[in-house]
């Protein structure tokens, strides 16, 4: 009898452990809590997922075209490309800064992309502030997106919180190449052979173009990264006069 009781106890404990583990698993995943209506949640998750896919790519394209900025800073060429060097002034955005710019832009654009979930009139969806942490690595960019959402339908509600995403764009490498290009310059010269070494080392292409007023536009193209089938291009400007 004692044995039977003991067996029942063990079964109960094991069952509790399994249930707790399952709960813990989903909680740690940050996705689903009690009361999930999986079909509705999947619809919402699919929208958010496609928005993340789209918006991250658009953001990276935009910010790279803008030399690391969401919007061109005041000290930009007339075509909106930021000056990294103007006369004796050097103003090169760091990787940390670009990560913040990407995150800020993503937070805004993601909000607009989901359109306050108006496409889900059958669901009551409440959302809180989106917080994105972007990490630019050499070969990829990772996004840790906290997008707290509670999906309610009838008396059931589900919360979704965090999303992870990454895109294989070598912004980290391109940024490093840009730094090497600028660091190889002297006060009076640009080092062409150094630029070639950098281009070969990182398997990138460097194009410069003279513009009016002595502006020199630099474009780094990485064929190993592409955004919506377009080559990845990073732009910055210099003016030495």
């Amino acid at each position: 009898m004692h044995n039977k009781k003991g067996q029942v106890t063990i079964f109960v404990v094991v069952a509790i452990v399994i249930v707790v583990s399952i709960l813990l698993f989903f909680t740690l995943q940050g996705n689903i809590r009690i009361g999930e209506s999986s079909k509705d949640v999947e619809r919402v998750k699919t929208l958010i997922g496609s928005c993340i896919d789209k918006v991250t790519l658009e953001t990276i394209y935009l910010i790279s075209k803008n030399g690391g900025y969401r919007s061109p800073p005041v000290d930009s060429t007339r075509y909106g490309v930021p000056y990294y060097i103007k006369g004796n002034q050097k103003n090169i955005p760091s990787i940390d800064f670009i990560e913040l710019e990407i995150s800020d832009h993503l937070n805004d654009e993601l909000f607009f992309c989901t359109k306050n979930f108006i496409d889900f009139p059958d669901l009551e969806i409440t959302q809180k502030t989106i917080i994105t942490k972007t990490k630019i690595l050499p070969e990829k960019i990772t996004f840790d997106i906290t997008y707290p959402i509670i999906i309610s339908k009838g008396d059931k509600s589900t919360s979704i919180k965090s999303f992870k995403h990454e895109i294989p764009v070598r912004l980290g490498i391109v940024h490093q190449a840009m730094l090497e290009m600028i660091n190889s310059q002297t006060t009076t010269e640009i080092c062409l052979s150094c630029n070639l070494k950098t281009a070969i080392k990182y398997d990138i292409y460097i194009e410069t173009e003279t513009q009016s007023g002595g502006d020199l536009l630099s474009i780094i193209t990485d064929e190993n990264s592409n955004i919506n089938e377009k080559e990845f291009r990073f732009l910055f400007a210099q003016n030495f006069q």
């Binding site: 190889s184 002297t186 009076t188 640009i190 080092c191 062409l192 030495f240 006069q241």
Partner: peptide
């Protein structure tokens, strides 16, 4: 010691 181009090459026309 390397191949350079002078920045004066990019003066306005």
């Amino acid at each position: 010691d390397d191949l350079f181009i002078s920045k004066s090459s990019f003066d306005s026309q």
